[in-house]
Amino acid sequence: MDEVDRKILIYIQNEFPIDDRPYLKIAKDLGLDEFEVMNRIINLYNLGYIKKIIPKLSKSYIEKYERALVAIKANEKDIVKVSEFINSFENITHNYLRDHHYNIWFTISGKNFEEILKQIKIITEKLEIDDYIILRSVKSLKLDTEFEVKK
């Protein structure tokens, strides 16, 4: 990653233009060539620096859904099996292994809290997990996934 890549990452992390020719818009703003911007972005994607290009959601959309953080205690030897089953549901947004009594922590969203509880019941019963906690989300006060892109 060179200085030009860095400039491009900082730019598109803030905004990827909705435009007939998005690369041209970025190129103009950064004083670069459209073809170069396109090749660099595709390359940065292939190298794994860019995960995906997604919409930044409005507060009203985020607040339409109920969310919860769920922590379960799974046997060390079952982690792969357990996490694969959890990930098979579409409304699981994050899933992490953590250094804690409860070792698997995942987030789940749904139209209402009953729906979320029902799904957690399916997951824990199927995996025979009896030690778990549900942390219902009251509100989100910060959601800012912009990272520092160092030289």
Binding site: L9, I12, Q13, N14, E15, F16, P17, I18, Y49, I50, K51, K52, I53, I54, P55, K56, L57, S58, Y61, T145, F147, V149
Partner: peptide
């Protein structure tokens, strides 16, 4: 939606 952006 607010805009599109890259998730790094």
């Amino acid at each position: 939606i607010i805009k599109f952006r890259a998730l790094l």
